[in-house]
Computed example of a mutant assay.
Amino acid sequence: MKKRLSIAALLVCCFAAAFAAFADLNGKWKGTLKIADFELPLTYTFKVDGETLTGACSTDQGDLPILNGKIKGSDFTFALDIQGQQMPQVGKFYGDSTVITSEFQGQKTHVKLLRAQ
C-alpha cells in the first residue's frame, strides 16, 4: 500500500513539474530569423492556458497573432498568418531557450529564442 502511495505521489509531482515548465513558457522571447544575408529580429509573446497557446510574433513590420496554438509535453505548434497564408510553426521548449522551426514558400527556417530581459 505504501509503495502504491509513493508511486502516486511521484506521478503527481512529475505532472506538477511538467505543468510548471509550461508556465515558464509564458512571456516574451527574442531571437533573429536569418535567411541568406537577411536578418529579422523577432519577439514572441506566449501565453499558456492549459494545453492552449496564444500570443503574438512581433517584428518591426508589425504583430502577427498566434493561431491554433497547442502544447503537448515540451512540444508546441501554432500558425502565423503571413499575407493570408498560414505558416505552420513547430516549437520545442527547453526551459532556458525555445526553438521554433517553420517552412514558408519552400524555405525552412530555424530560430532559437531566449527569454527577453
Rank of each mutant, 00 (worst) to 15 (best):
F76Q: 08
D96K: 14
I100D: 02
T98C: 14
K30S: 07
A116I: 10
T101D: 08
P65S: 08
T52V: 15
D75M: 09
S102L: 01
L10K: 12
Q85C: 06
S74R: 12
K92C: 04
D75E: 13
C57H: 00
L42E: 00
A17E: 14
D63K: 06
S97Q: 15
R115A: 10
E51S: 11
F19S: 14
D96C: 10
K34I: 02
C57W: 01
Q86M: 14
K70E: 09
I71N: 00
T54A: 06
K34A: 06
F104P: 12
K70L: 07
D24E: 15
A8L: 08
T109H: 03
Q117D: 08
F93Y: 11
D24I: 03
I100C: 08
G73P: 01
R115P: 11
K112A: 03
L53W: 00
L80D: 01
F38P: 12
P88R: 02
P41N: 03
D60W: 06
G27N: 06
G69R: 00
S74T: 02
F19E: 15
Q107D: 01
Y44G: 02
K34Q: 11
E103H: 01
Q107V: 04
K112G: 04
D24Q: 13
V12R: 07
Q117E: 05
I82M: 14
S97F: 07
K72S: 14
A9V: 04
D37C: 08
M1D: 12
K47L: 09
K34R: 12
F46W: 03
Q89K: 09
S97T: 06
D96H: 10
K30R: 10
A8V: 00
D96Q: 14
T45F: 02
T98W: 00
L11M: 07
G95S: 13
L67W: 00
I82F: 04
T101C: 12
F46L: 10
F19W: 13
A116S: 10
L10A: 13
A79D: 01
Q107P: 04
N68A: 14
L80N: 05
H110E: 00
A23W: 02
I35V: 11
I7Q: 15
K92P: 15
T101V: 12
L42I: 02
I100T: 05
K30P: 07
R4Q: 12
K2F: 09
K70V: 14
G62L: 04
V48N: 01
L53P: 06
Q61N: 10
F78L: 03
A17N: 14
A116K: 07
K72D: 13
